[in-house]
Write a protein that binds this DNA or RNA. Structure first.
Length: 502
RNA sequence: GGCCCCAUAGUGAAGCGGUCUAACACACCAGCCUUUCACGCUGGCGACACGGGUUCGAAUCCCGUUGGGGUCACCA
């Protein structure tokens, strides 16, 4: 027999932003679908924000696209099982609820919020589990009419059967609970809008979803959902509940404790490829030893629900940084340049980029390509190529902090010596290296001792890309100016020259 | 608190009753490489939550305890 076609879905609320948790869940659904030749569906769960759905869903869509996921059916691309926004399916839910009403598997409830609240309080006071006691469970048609005539809009509740509710989770195995503790729950609110659990079940059924792959926070929602499937006599989809992503303090990942929206990660200079790769490993593992840097297509081949893990996973940004660096190194020079450009513009280092800006940036990035963990660090790291600084800002401590205890005078004279050297030959990294090595030898200094003050003079920091290539990219004039600037700074209250900057 | 889920080093995890004096990756430490940093390489640190069972044998199975998490609405 041929199994049902694989159809999976992601059902985000239109919050305006795409949450990493949503992205991770979407990823797993996507991988599962692609791997099995199935269909990946995007459905918008917008029953509580009927107003601004359209704009708010865009943020979610953009996030998913940014990270590289696309869907086969959805509100924007259409499909045979639409509409794909719950707000456009209200009629379907109402119809289904009426089926239940007719079969007496559900009933109308006229209790007011106040009544319910009072009942709940009493139960709590008696230390009972709060749940609906069934006040309206057996109203006659006449009684309902009277209530309705008073203008009271009823909600609709499902008659919950006694016994055990359960399902087989393909990640966790059998999960069960006593149905009695929930009470007859609402499926349609008095305003006619379905409650989440009801809308979800109807949609899974109508859209013929075969596997419901979602976060573990939905485990407890599954019990009432199972009851709804049963009431209709529908076959249930396969459930798979993914482990939660946690803050470092082990609480459920949250905005206050770190980045959670895809836009935040983008702004921090994370590559979508890296974030995707990282998320794939939070809750799933290929097993055994293997490469951890994997692309979407590679993940597609390896993924399996069976290898999803069962315990919640802390989102470790340090490892994300490492992975991001790995992905940055895989970028071509041109690709890196175009991804870094927005950060340069943001930082004000480049205005409206013209071709020459791109060429120069690409040359600069070549120097730091291997040492860049995040794109957003590029402007800071490259700043000294773009901006000069006055003598007062030269970091004298750095300049004179040699391991071999050179004096200020030593440093000064070496700087002077170096300035002379610069003009003597061709200004290439190779030539410079040769000259400075010779200088160090003649001075009987270790090369490192010579290069550190030069590095500080040229970049005003103690860490930089290899000095000679840095000098070459900077050019003779700039380098000379900066050495002069540093010399001036060394002379103490030295005046001022305007040689070091424009 | 009730219900549900989970429990291997700081973090992600391999392990599916013997091959475990327990992989691998990130982090951390040391060394090598090296003009600084980074990369790379080598080595190190560091874990089966606890207690009972079952078994010839348990990280692996069962029970309890403890701990962590999720969820308890006419929110989604």
């Amino acid at each position: 027999m041929n199994p049902k076609p694989i159809r999976v879905r992601i059902a985000p609320s239109p919050t305006g932003n795409c949450h990493v948790g949503t992205a991770r869940t979407a990823l797993y659904n996507y991988l599962f679908a692609k791997q099995t030749g199935g269909t990946f569906i995007l459905r918008v769960d917008d029953t509580d924000s009927l107003r601004n759905t359209l704009e708010s869903e865009q943020g979610v869509f953009e996030g998913l696209r940014w990270i590289g996921l696309s869907w086969d059916e959805g509100p924007d691309v259409g499909g045979a099982y639409g509409p794909y926004r719950q707000s456009e399916r209200l009629g379907i839910y109402a119809e289904r609820a009426h089926e239940l009403l007719e079969k007496d598997l559900a009933y109308e409830c006229f209790c007011s919020p106040e009544d319910l609240e009072a009942e709940r309080k009493q139960q709590m006071a008696r230390k009972e589990d709060p749940h609906y006691g069934g006040h309206c469970a057996n109203l006659t048609a006449a009684e309902r009419e009277t209530l309705r005539a008073k203008g009271i809009k009823p909600s609709i509740r499902l008659r919950v059967r006694p016994g055990t509710v359960g399902f087989d989770d393909s990640i966790r195995g059998r999960v069960e609970q006593d149905a009695g503790i929930m009470g007859d729950f609402v499926i349609i609110k008095s305003n006619g809008i379905p409650v989440y659990n009801f809308g979800t079940v109807i949609d899974e059924y109508e859209m013929q979803i075969s596997h419901v792959i979602r976060g573990a926070e939905h485990i407890s929602n599954t019990f009432p959902q199972v009851l709804i499937y049963e009431a209709f006599g529908w076959e249930m989809p396969v459930f798979a509940h993914l482990v939660l992503m946690l803050n470092p303090d082990k609480t459920k990942i949250s905005k206050r404790k770190g980045a959670v929206y895809l836009g935040d990660f983008a702004a921090m200079g994370y590559l979508p490829e890296a974030l995707l790769n990282f998320c794939a490993f939070l809750g799933w593992t290929p097993g055994g030893i293997s490469e951890e840097i994997l692309s979407l297509t590679e993940l597609q081949e390896m993924f399996s629900l069976q290898r999803c893990t069962q315990s919640n996973a802390v989102f470790d940004q340090v490892k994300l940084d490492w992975m991001n660096g790995m992905w940055i190194r895989r970028l071509s020079a041109a690709e890196l340049t175009s991804r870094v450009m927005p950060f340069m513009i943001d930082a004000g280092l480049i205005n409206v980029p013209v071709k020459s800006d791109e060429i120069r940036l690409e040359a600069l990035l070549e120097l730091i390509h291997e040492r860049l963990p995040r794109l957003d660090e590029a402007p800071e790291t490259l700043a000294y190529f773009y901006t000069d600084w006055p003598a007062e800002e030269v970091d004298l401590d750095l300049l004179t902090a040699s391991k071999s205890n050179r004096t200020k005078e030593d440093i000064y004279s070496v700087l002077q010596e170096s300035i002379k050297l610069l003009r003597s030959n061709s200004f290439t990294a190779a030539a410079l290296e040769e000259q400075f090595k010779a200088l160090a030898a003649s001075l009987e200094w270790k090369l490192g001792d010579l290069l550190m003050p030069l590095r500080v003079a040229v970049t005003n920091r103690k860490i930089s890309p290899p000095l000679f290539t840095t000098m070459e990219v900077l050019g003779l004039e700039k380098v000379s100016q900066r050495l002069a600037n540093a010399s001036a700074a060394l002379l103490g209250n030295a005046p001022a020259d305007r040689s070091g900057h424009e």
